[in-house]
Amino acid sequence: MRPRSRVNGEGSVDPAVEAARACLSTSSHPVYNISYLVNAKTRHPSHVFEPANAVSIQDSLDMNTGVGGKGTFSFDLMNGASGGLTGIKVIISAIKGGAARVGMMIAGDMNTNMEVANMNMGMNACSASGSAVIVDISPNPDKGFGSFLFKTFDIYSDLPCRYLDVDNESRKTCGWENDELEEIYVECAAITYEKLLKKERILSTYNAVDFVFATQISPNFMVRLARGLGLPEEMVIDVTGILNGVTLTSSPFIAFDYAMRNNMIKPGMKAAFITVGQGITVGCAMYYC
């Protein structure tokens, strides 16, 4: 897994491409090894819904384009803020199922009009960002991703949805109450995290992980999440200060990148990825460094 970080730019495609290039630049895999490309996104840039944005990203990366190459299967995946983590899960399944050897998940979040969005949503304005992760088979069975768990709390399905009104180019939410919503996010994340630990046969939350890389919603949310998981605040990596707004599907990997760049991650450490978005859908995964 080789995530790379946020880039500046508008539209979810450009940041995703830049992140993918950065990721490939340090990978042992040449671009033509990538046979499975998942583009996790939360909306259609410029309202283009056909073909998949993954196609133009694949073209920008010159990844097995044209006829007669090794071939890449690329598509867009949407699962709100859990899209990136879902994409990694899908790639791992493809590897286990024999459909791919090496896959790449790219995640892009966008906001075409930060001014309007900031006006409408305050802290919930989305920042343009991208991240990319190359997934292959770990040579060491004790390292790499462990279990994944995705849970949708349908009792909260009536809570606000985040939608884009094409007619006036603005994002809107209905009944959005940040404080209340963050509390619910934390509650759902804690339940799912506990189930993940059980799935991994980790009996105690104490020392269960060294770090948590979560959806970067707000500084307040990161603190709440740490408390909700029963962890010290410093174990939940907070990069909201450098992101200039919410990042959704790309954000846990930006936080992971931040930790790697700052030499916080050491071999043998355990990390949990936790994503929360509306639905309410929570994604959790364990990663052994």
Partner: peptide
Amino acid sequence: FPGYENGNKHSGEPCLSARIMN
């Protein structure tokens, strides 16, 4: 036909499969 619901509103979150699941 992804994400466009109720006229021109594009549902970013949650995804449509969440509705199907529910």
